[in-house]
Design a protein around this nucleic acid. Structure first.
Lengths: 146, 146
DNA sequence: TCTGACGTTTACGTAAACGTAAACCCGAGG
DNA sequence: CCTCGGGTTTACGTTTACGTAAACGTCAGA
């Protein structure tokens, strides 16, 4: 199976994911990462790298660090407390709903981008025979209103 | 066609979209909304309502207010400056790429939520005959790595 | 007339997510 | 030996997106 013992320095990860070292240390402050230490120096494992990946993806989706921490903990059900597991399941369901809404939002927005782009191109092509269609104000309303 | 002359008070919109009046005024500070005034009082049209909707959807997708303002302006190509239109098209393309990444992120995350949920349910069902599978640390790595 | 619910402005406060600077340590290379 | 490029901590600064409080106007209803 694949090599697993890879060790990363803080710069390695910073470069790979295009964040600053400060950012990575900040995540540790927030209790999201727990690298080993060799003296003063932080050393990151593959596992840490994956967590960082999760955090950054969470960021792209608009999650707070606290939420990302929860998400990470989801994959680590060290707790055998049944009550906690149930609460966790709740959170998962909530997340799923939020994601579903995001999907809808994105689809809507993509459709509107399609339309916007077309209007742009149209405007670029025919800057001379302008104003064949309805005025702009109408369009905005139609775009989103239901 | 549909009734168009609807007028909303700040509270109306606040209630409808579950934000505070403060928030709505803040968007005006940021030049995202421009309601009419009747004396001191702000009055919002359907068009304003749609803009607010766009802003809030932008928020859900992690856009800053500045970005949302740009997005709104996209639908309002009052500028007949061709140069601006080209820049605008650039922005639209960038947006689209970002949204595509978000879609991937969301799909990944939904898959992981499926897995996480299953692990939860499994843990709930068989709290007795525990530890049939690989230990948790492996799972996290497999979930995202690759 | 008083109260209460709504509106307004001005302005300071706050939480999150880092940026940035100071001041330090440490190992390798010239 | 010195410097350079990395690492570290501590701590204050910054931006965004509002919250919150003060202090006020206005109109409807009891």
């Amino acid at each position: 199976m694949g090599e697993k013992k890879a060790i990363y320095t803080i710069r390695d990860l910073a470069r790979e994911f295009d964040v600053t070292s400060r950012t990575i240390r900040f995540y540790e402050e927030g209790d999201l990462l727990h690298p080993q230490r060799e003296g003063q120096t932080r050393l990151y494992t593959d596992r840490d790298r994956v967590k960082l990946k999760l955090i950054l993806r969470g960021k792209r989706l608009g999650f707070s660090l606290a939420e990302s921490r929860e998400l990470i903990e989801m994959y680590d059900p060290t707790s055998d407390n049944i009550h906690q597991l149930l609460a966790l399941r709740e959170k998962i369901l909530n997340r799923r709903e939020a994601l579903q809404q995001q999907l809808l939002d994105i689809q809507d927005m993509q459709n509107e981008l399609d339309a916007a782009e077309e209007r742009c191109l149209e405007a670029l092509r025919g800057s001379d025979h302008r104003n064949d269609e309805a005025p702009a104000p109408q369009r905005l309303a139609q775009a989103v209103d239901q």
